[in-house]
Design a protein around this nucleic acid. Structure first.
Length: 429
DNA sequence: TCTGGGGTCCTAGGACCC
DNA sequence: TCTGGGGTCCTAGGACCC
């Protein structure tokens, strides 16, 4: 039986999350800023109408924002993550075949649902998610993931569709008519660079792309381009992934809230990021062999001296033990740190990740380098348990510092209504 | 003054092997 | 002077996604 992919996409997700707990924001322009309050990463429809672009630096639109009384929020990932889980849990009530694609998107395979009217199913999904979570979603349904993305594009552009479009019963001609209206850069998998090249060769719409010479597509876009083209033709090439695969690399990095110059501040930051990354590592029950540390100055400040460097360390045995990782991280920082620069960003990367329990003993590790030491496992497990029970950062590592003056700006963050007791919603009556 | 963060996949090219 | 063929593995870089 043919696949029936429904793509459920939360509308203006972060902005919608802010509205769930603050109905006064309804029908008003809302934007959410990236970490460090740097760029605009989510906009309500009203904010889009004002001409605020995705990814636009905040300082460039400050005047526009004041003039139009736009409601501005720092990003509150704890809240968004929790609401995202609620949306996904709602989808699971329709089918077990759910792929969580991103924080605001999920695919559901409807093929086993034994229904004829997929549009109606889409409508039910939409209504249930809205009533259970407060989040409005768009639903696109088709035989391939890429076409479901296309359907979703049209749902957002066309209000009369009421949030749902199913292409399942569309003829090839009807689909082609839609593709003629769709810019080639709006196709999933075709980004800025590819669409520029395609346009130079006269391919402007999704329809043009669908009927281009596959040899040409392969030449400029490699195998991924061929898959996208096939998917537009209704041949499914990109399967749903129900299991979340373990990450092959875990990266934690942030810009600083101020210029950082001293080794000590960088040390605190590297230590903090390593703590976060190793928590992520353990949450997928893995260990890693390699840690990379990087630091850089701000490339936008053309008058400052620029410096950027990174350095890696390979462990003899895979580890997940935060103190060992921090120790390695700080010694790497020592190698690349140079005084006299304004540092703007630092980060760490864990790679060569293997599942816990599949480790191979090192033949040469005859001294006391016991990364897989059961005591260490137990200690760090207890640390995780305590932090999970009493909240993040109940137990911290001394090298991470306490005041953290280098930390990101997050001045306009709403409360974490659903994940933090101290910030639970209060109602005045 | 102020410009995000965290991932994936694919390919080309070099080193190395027999 | 003459100088194969077929692999694997690793890394860097470039594209994409949200």
């Amino acid at each position: 039986m043919k696949n029936v992919f429904a793509l459920i996409d939360c509308n203006n997700f972060y902005a919608s999350c802010e509205r769930v707990f603050n109905p006064l924001l309804e029908n008003k322009p809302v934007i959410v800023l990236s970490n460090n309050d740097g760029c605009c990463v989510a906009r309500s429809n009203e904010a889009k109408k004002l001409g605020i672009k995705m990814g636009e630096p905040f300082f460039k639109i400050k005047d526009l924002i004041e003039k139009n009384k736009v409601n501005v929020f720092s990003s509150n990932y704890e809240l968004y993550g929790d609401i995202s889980n609620r949306v996904v849990n709602t989808l699971f009530t329709f089918s077990p075949d759910v792929e969580v694609y991103s924080i605001d998107e999920a695919f559901v395979n409807l093929k086993n649902l034994a229904v004829n009217d997929y549009r109606n199913t889409g409508k039910q999904i939409r209504e249930k998610v809205l009533s259970w979570t407060g989040i409005p979603v768009s639903v696109g349904i088709s035989p391939t993931k890429t076409l479901s993305k296309v359907a979703n594009e049209f749902v957002k552009k066309n209000k009369s569709l009421n949030g749902v479009l199913s292409l399942i019963d569309y003829s090839e001609e009807e689909i082609d008519n839609l593709l003629r209206e769709l810019d080639v850069s709006d196709v999933w998998g075709i980004g800025r660079q590819y669409s520029k090249k395609l346009r130079e060769d006269g391919i402007n719409t999704a329809y043009d792309f669908k009927y281009s010479n596959p040899k040409y597509i392969q030449k400029i876009m490699t195998i991924g381009g061929i898959k996208t083209q096939q998917e537009l033709k209704g041949i499914s090439c990109i399967p749903i992934e129900y299991e979340i695969p373990d990450k092959k690399g875990i990266c934690t990095s942030r810009s600083f809230g101020k210029n950082v110059t001293t080794f000590n501040e960088l040390k605190e930051a590297i230590s903090t990021y390593t703590t976060t990354a190793s928590e992520k590592l353990r949450s997928q029950s893995s260990r890693c062999f390699r840690i990379t540390v990087f630091i850089r100055t701000n490339p936008f400040r053309v008058n400052d001296k620029q410096y950027s460097n990174s350095c890696s360390y390979n462990f003899q045995e895979a580890t997940q033990y935060t103190p060992d990782l921090i120790k390695a991280g700080i010694s790497l920082l020592n190698k690349i740190y140079k005084p006299g620069y304004y540092y703007q960003k630092a980060g760490i990367l864990l790679t060569e990740i293997i599942p816990q329990g599949k480790e191979q003993e090192s033949l040469f590790n005859l001294d006391n380098l016991q990364y897989k030491n059961p005591k260490k496992d137990l200690v760090i497990q207890k640390v995780d348990e305590i932090n999970s029970l009493f909240g993040n950062n109940t137990l911290i590592f001394g090298s991470s510092g306490i005041k953290k003056e280098w930390k990101i700006k997050s001045e306009k963050r709403s409360d974490r209504y659903t994940t933090c007791f101290k910030e639970i919603l209060t109602i005045k009556i």
